[in-house]
Nucleic acid binder design. Structure first.
Length: 167
DNA sequence: TCAATGATTTTG
DNA sequence: AAAATCATTGAT
């Protein structure tokens, strides 16, 4: 067991996001441990990033993003899918990494469906939780980047930032 | 290509 | 208090 420690998460989201690729997301699902290699992520960077929920101000929903790196931010999109995010950076710096894909699962909504992640995971700590955490994994061969998906509403320069990272 | 679906946010 | 919004998915 080589769980990733807090210091990994308290860095800037643009450092953490690409580092997450190749790491193992581990969960206890139906009583047994399962792990998945993270293959696709997106960075959401604080109040100045208009694609980030926190840019609209601190609300009950975005509150978790202001916590110290290492906790989980889960929210419902379109009333249909749960999105799984990992909060990064220091206290009161609202940044998060959206996990968009695992090696065997494509699509952010399908991850949470498969792993049985729902709103009770919101605010849970990846450092101390017994049911979900990250471990060191394989180092990716090559990392690709692209603009983020589905954020046309955010406007420039945010729509063209290459803050989506994948293997 | 478009309907589904519900918490959050705005009063569109 | 009511209604629009919405970072996706899967079926048509």
């Amino acid at each position: 067991m080589n769980r990733i420690y807090e210091s990994f998460y308290t860095r800037d989201v643009l450092e953490v996001a690409p580092d997450l690729l190749g790491k193992k997301l581990c969960v206890y699902s139906v009583g047994k441990k399962e792990s998945f290699i993270i293959s696709e992520v997106e960075a959401y960077r604080g109040v100045e990033d208009s694609a980030c929920h926190a840019s609209k101000g601190r609300t009950p929903r975005t509150e978790v993003m202001y916590k110290k790196g290492g906790v989980i931010y889960v929210y419902l999109i379109y009333g249909v899918h749960w999105m799984f995010n990992i909060v990064t950076a220091e206290l009161d710096v609202p940044q998060a990494v959206l996990i968009r894909g695992l090696r065997s699962i494509n699509g952010p909504g399908r991850i949470t469906n498969k792993l049985n992640i729902e709103k009770s995971f919101n605010g849970e700590s990846l450092i101390s939780s017994q049911r979900i955490w990250l471990e060191d994994g394989e180092k990716p061969d090559e990392i690709f980047t692209s603009p983020r998906i589905g954020i046309d509403y955010a406007g420039e320069p945010w729509t063209s930032k290459a803050w989506r990272y994948f293997i």
